[in-house]
């Protein structure tokens, strides 16, 4: 469990990135911070592993103030995935994945073996392990980034717009993959994005932020869609434009067709199934 206790951050230039922010991020759940640039979402994420120190307030992991932890040890205990993967260009893929275990003293051979297994986990061919990051596609690099973050088997995974730099098709792929991984591994994930669809897709808890780290609304995607807290949220999730409003329409096919679901503009987006969804939360 991660707790923010009335956390504020004023940068040296005087800008208030975050002001009096409090929130509980439950264990083994995915919390997504979403908002436009300048809303302080990345600042909040980076406070968890002390890449940013709060000006006031505390960040607690399982009840322990991170300010009391050794920075380097703390960071090694937390998985971190960032945009464009942030891989070390001079290390082979397998060594990139093995970085943190080697730093914490695992024998190189053993760490590499575990790294190859992690390549399987994130759906990469083991043969890619011997290449350098620059020889991989953007999507592959991002998977390596996830594998590296998982290598030390951390309880917490911080993901800073990890899929922002890859094309939409690959992004959709990676999102599905992350959901599968999260179902298997049950990490406490903190995910930052400016894409509300990505937030709804991945989150157990969505936190919509306004400028200065002000929480516009926090809740499950269903809660937010069902009852947007204010006009800002409604506009942010697209509810005000009818983007989220779906209608049922009888399909064609002489009475035999299934009921189809159409969006606010009347464009068909799916069919209505019998019974509840498999993955109903």
């Amino acid at each position: 469990m991660i707790e923010f206790e009335s956390v504020s951050k004023r940068f040296d230039d005087g800008t208030m990135a975050v002001e009096d922010f409090s929130l509980v991020l439950p264990s083994r759940q995915t919390t997504v911070f979403v908002g436009s640039s300048g809303c302080g979402k990345t600042t909040l994420l980076r406070m968890v592993n002390r890449m940013v120190e709060p000006t006031s307030g505390r960040v607690l992991i399982d009840g322990e103030d991170v300010a009391g932890r050794d920075k380097v040890q703390l960071r090694r205990s937390i998985g971190y995935v960032l945009q464009a993967a942030g891989l070390l260009p001079h290390r082979k893929v397998v060594d990139n994945v093995a970085t943190v275990p080697v730093l914490t003293g695992t024998a190189k051979a053993k760490a590499r073996e575990a790294a190859y297994e992690l390549l399987d986990t994130v759906g990469l061919d083991r043969a890619l392990g011997k290449r350098y990051p620059a020889q991989l596609s953007g999507g592959q690099q991002q998977r390596v980034g996830v594998a590296r973050a998982l290598a030390s088997d951390p309880n917490i995974l911080l993901m800073d717009e990890p899929f922002g730099a890859v094309d939409p098709l690959v992004r959709a792929d990676l999102q599905v993959e992350l959901r599968r991984l999260q179902q298997d591994l049950g990490k406490t994930v903190v995910f930052v994005t400016h894409d509300i669809d990505e937030a709804f897709l991945l989150a157990d808890q969505v936190v919509i932020l306004k400028k200065g780290g002000v929480v516009a609304q926090a809740g499950s995607p269903a809660e937010i869609l069902a009852a947007p807290a204010d006009d800002f949220v409604a506009s942010f999730v697209g509810a005000d434009r009818g983007k989220r409003t779906l209608h049922l329409r009888d399909g064609d096919g002489g009475g035999k067709g299934r009921t189809i679901v159409v969006d606010g503009d009347g464009r068909p987006i799916g069919v209505l199934a019998d019974g509840p969804a498999d993955g109903a939360r």
């Binding site: 890449m51 960071r75 090694r76 942030g86 970085t99 943190v100 730093l103």
Partner: peptide, 8 residues
Amino acid sequence: EASTAIGY
């Protein structure tokens, strides 16, 4: 930055 963040 990334290497700092992962614990170097």
